[in-house]
């Protein structure tokens, strides 16, 4: 097995940022800290789960928080940075914009998988969450993936939202349109 080093973690993040049009956090100290966290998690769990989230150690439960996590695209689009701030937008990278503390987008129900299942939430706790977050955590609406195509190069992808940029031709997210055609399969 290849040894996991800060260098390998950095190389992978850089390559991913290039492909998907993101930038790595420009603060060297912060970047180093984020890479170290990813390295520890990769050594501990066998996959680089988000250093700022508690992982369960079970791949099927942590799949959505393996870096780059499922929440990166919507978070960078909305706030200019992902939850842990490893990936940022061009504006943030160039110092034109300071992102706020990015709120947790991962559904609480998925976060709870990292904790012992026996501790079922008390009714009053669920009530308290409604008051604090203004959301009914008992009902989690999961986004539905759709088919999107790049109007510039024709690249097609199946996901909740269009990508930040086209990974093939680098067209902006605005160039993506939803494919609404009903595909019928004739046997």
């Amino acid at each position: 097995m290849t040894e996991i080093t800060i260098e390998t973690v950095l190389k992978r993040a850089e390559a991913d940022a290039r492909t998907y049009g993101y930038y790595l956090n420009p603060d060297p100290e912060l970047l180093q800290g984020l890479l170290e966290g990813l390295k520890v998690n990769e050594e501990r769990y066998g996959y680089p789960s988000c250093p700022c989230r508690l992982a369960s150690g079970k791949f099927e439960h942590d799949r959505d928080i393996i870096c780059p996590c499922d929440y990166r695209d919507p978070d960078v689009a909305e706030f200019g940075a992902c939850y842990c701030r490893l990936y940022v937008s061009k504006e943030v990278f160039e110092g034109k914009k300071e992102p706020p503390t990015v709120p947790e987008r991962r559904p609480l129900e998925k976060q709870s998988r990292a904790y012992l299942a026996t501790s079922e939430l008390k009714a009053e706790t669920v009530e308290m969450q409604k008051v604090l977050t203004g959301k009914d955590t008992a009902k989690v609406v999961e986004p539905k993936p759709k088919l999107w195509y790049c109007k510039q190069c024709g690249y097609v992808v199946f996901r909740d939202e269009p990508p930040y940029i086209c990974p093939i031709c680098k067209a902006k997210r605005e160039m993506f349109a939803e494919i609404k055609t009903l595909i019928e399969f004739v046997v």
Partner: peptide, 13 residues
Amino acid sequence: REELQSRSGGLSY
């Protein structure tokens, strides 16, 4: 988890 959720409504660090 109980402690954090009842106090902050979430499980963030």
